[in-house]
Nucleic acid binder design. Structure first.
Length: 482
RNA sequence: GGCGACAUGGCCAAGCGGUAAGGCGAGGGUCUGCAAAACCCUUAUCCCCGGUUCGAUUCCGGGUGUCGCCUCCA
């Protein structure tokens, strides 16, 4: 088994081999925190979290860095509008973003550098590019000569001749060619700026990533992630300026892009105004269901957004959770007999395990990996007997323990954790549990007396409060529902 | 206009040369006082037309459709 990944640069699946054995260095383009995050922002975060968990599981030491662009036109515009300093706006939304990521179970990156924190390095790199003849100063701006870099267009597959007539590039008298882009821009008095050899100014867009990659990871890095919309011009330019500066290639060994999230067939994006905030989604749906939804399509495919899909994911997540509880319950109660056909269960578990890794090795095929998890759930449900009374069977117990361990491991790689549904406040939690227990006992009594009207009324009332009662041979169980 | 991606059941979504994983939904059955959960069964020939092949959803060519990039964007 070997991990294969699709590399945007070569346009094919390649076997993944890190530069340095046992170590993987990853840089992912983060967000510009100038407004609330939407679900589209959660896709790369969850995807890369899974990559990281998987690589870590495989034994690699993974370093992942993700930037926050805190100097940018929209941020500056918003600052002028509201009178709040750009840095303050950026930090507020960055913090919100991280809180949402925590909810989604995304492990924190090793570093979240801000553009404003790497100004000296940006100036150094810009100076070096000028010295090498790849960049030139023009009225306080510094531009990169796109056409001077011979590999320009290799990532996006664009040719210089095709780009020129396009004429949709920002035209400026300050540039030698419309394809050139700013490494450094002069700042007006009322906008943020830093002193530089070219006067007061601020970095261009692409340069921060080049600098952060070098500063925090060292080149070449193994994987660079980002959305497909960043392939051109952002990543194309990033390669050009970095390789021109470093004087060697590659700058990045595997370019790994994810596709967009669509709303009613159109890309969800702020500029189109068709965004759905992450906050809203996380209020409405179980974060793990959201995670399941985000992993339900391969990273290179467009993911359609709809409430129906989220609801469907929530049902799927419930199924996984129920499978967990079934196995847990069995294992925690030695009275429960065993597995129906332990050998068959073991065989199924082994099969699901194998399929799961095969899927993950195939360019992180999470939808296929999820299918293995669902198969595993079905096997557990079909084999595990939690209807008490029967004598213990060690072989059966072992098979179930193994199934449970596998489920835990596979779900762990995808970051799907069955959170125990305890209420935060312990006093409230105890109260709720006590009251439900009381009601359950009363209902139990009614059922014994065949007073089903009372029993059903209790169940219905609790159900409308979001508490589901289930009568099983082992007694009445309850859980929260939405 | 240039470049590129995709088109699989009611809704999602894997597979990509040997006659279609999985989830949600729907229908039937088992269990249950009834529910719930769960299990079992049923629910597709893969956009169209050509070609290559013993054989194509899977490869090639041509259509049609949808989306993305070429401008800020995860």
């Amino acid at each position: 088994m070997a991990l294969r990944v699709y590399n945007t640069l070569t346009r094919r699946d390649e076997e993944f081999k890190p530069l340095e054995e046992g170590r993987v260095r990853i840089y992912v383009c983060g967000i510009t925190p100038y407004d609330k995050s939407h679900i589209g922002h959660a896709r790369p975060s969850v995807f890369w979290d899974v990559v990281r968990r998987y690589l870590t599981y495989l034994g690699y030491q993974v370093t992942l860095v993700q930037n926050f662009t805190d100097i940018e036109d929209k941020l500056i515009a918003k600052s002028k509008e509201t009178g709040t300093p750009p840095a303050e706006i950026a930090e507020k939304y960055a913090a919100d973003y991280l809180v949402a990521m925590d909810k989604l179970g995304v492990q924190r990156a090793d570093a979240y550098p801000r553009a404003s924190q790497v100004i000296p390095e940006i100036i150094e790199m810009t100076k070096a590019l000028i010295a090498k003849g790849y960049a030139y100063e023009s009225s306080g701006d510094v531009y990169f000569r796109a056409e001077k870099f011979k590999g320009y267009g290799k990532l996006s597959g664009k040719k210089l001749e095709e780009l020129r007539p396009g004429a949709r590039v920002e035209v400026s008298d300050l540039k030698e060619s419309p394809l050139d882009w700013a490494l450094w821009k002069a700042s007006p008095e009322d906008e943020p700026g830093w002193p530089s050899p070219w006067g007061r100014g601020r970095p261009g867009w692409h340069i921060e990533c080049s600098v952060m990659v070098q500063k925090y990871l060292g080149t070449p890095i193994d994987m660079h992630g980002g959305g497909t919309e960043l392939i051109f011009p952002h990543h194309e330019n990033e390669i050009a300026q970095s390789e021109a500066y470093l004087g060697k290639e590659p700058y990045v060994r595997y370019w790994i892009h994810h596709d967009m999230l669509n709303l009613e067939g159109e890309k969800m994006s702020k500029s189109l105004g068709n965004v759905i905030s992450l906050d809203e989604i996380l209020r409405k749906y179980d974060p793990m269901a959201v995670r399941l939804y985000l992993l339900s399509a391969h990273r290179r495919k467009i993911l359609e957004f709809s409430d129906e899909l989220l609801r469907s994911a929530e049902k799927g997540w419930e199924r996984i959770r129920n499978g967990f509880s079934r196995a847990q319950e069995f294992l925690s109660n030695p009275r429960f007999g065993g597995a129906r056909d332990p050998l068959n269960l073991q065989r199924e578990v082994a099969r699901c395990n194998e399929e799961f890794f095969k899927a993950m090795d195939d360019d992180f095929n999470t939808p296929s990996a999820l299918a293995s998890i669902f198969d595993l759930i079905t096997a557990i449900n079909a084999h595990v007997v939690t209807s008490g009374g029967e004598t213990s069977d060690s072989r059966g117990r072992e098979a179930v323990a193994e199934a449970y361990g596998t489920l835990l491991r596979l779900c762990g790689i995808l970051g799907l954790a069955p959170v125990t549904e305890k209420v935060q406040d312990t006093v409230d939690a105890r109260l709720v549990e006590g009251v439900i227990k009381l009601l359950t006992e009363i209902r139990e009594k009614s059922r014994k007396e065949k007073d089903y009207r009372t029993a059903d009324a209790i169940r219905e009332r609790l159900s409308s409060l979001g508490i589901l009662l289930e009568d099983t041979p082992a007694g009445t169980k309850w859980r929260f529902i939405r």
